[in-house]
């Protein structure tokens, strides 16, 4: 049987891990990340005909939009405080067994420091350091000028080096 969405499988599907990684770091929670990625992939499936250029930043931008749309909805419903997801929901601190068992203490401290960054700094840091996106690609994903990406990245790194790791 021929594939129904060959272009999607060739261009977009290879970035599923990247999509999950970004969703996981944004949401700070594996279950929420599952939901975000599944919804983002459905949207990507619907719109990939309009895709031009590299699919990875395009997909990550969709993931980010889905995350913020859900966050907005939850904030409107009063489920989330306006100032962020909250430090009580840091990955590692909530105890997700598969990650706790695999990570050293050092790694957990690093994990908590990243998770403790404000969202707009955390997303830039994760996109740069873990997904190896260029400044230009991050600017596209986050929808801010490159100068803003540079200053957010620098601020994120300042906070990280200031944290006791």
């Amino acid at each position: 049987m021929p594939k129904r969405h060959p272009e999607f499988e060739r261009l977009v599907l290879p970035h599923l891990d990247a999509a999950y990684n970004v969703a996981r770091w944004l949401a700070g929670d594996p279950t929420a990340a599952d939901d975000i990625v599944q919804e983002a992939m459905l949207r990507a499936l619907r719109y990939h005909q309009g895709l031009r250029g590299d699919a990875k930043p395009w997909l990550l931008r969709i993931v980010r939009n889905v995350f913020y749309a859900r966050l907005d909805a939850r904030r409107r419903a009063g489920e989330v405080p306006l100032d962020g997801i909250g430090l009580d929901r840091l990955p590692g601190a909530t105890g997700t067994p598969e990650t706790d068992l695999d990570q050293s203490q050092r790694s957990q401290a690093l994990d908590r420091a990243i998770a403790g960054l404000p969202e707009e700094l955390r997303e830039c840091l994760v996109l740069r350091e873990l997904e190896e996106m260029t400044y230009k690609e991050i600017a596209e994903i986050v929808e801010v000028p490159i100068g803003t990406v540079m200053s957010r990245l620098f601020r994120a790194r300042q906070l990280m080096t200031g944290a006791a790791l």
Binding site: L16, D17, A19, Y20, N21, R24, W25, P30, A33, D34, V37, T99, D102, Q103, S104, R106, S107, L110, D111, I114, L125, E129, L130, M160, L165
Partner: peptide
């Protein structure tokens, strides 16, 4: 350190 120790989560 980030590249060596920060987890890059893979889709389950």
């Amino acid at each position: 350190r980030l590249r060596a120790d920060a987890p890059r989560y893979a889709a389950p």
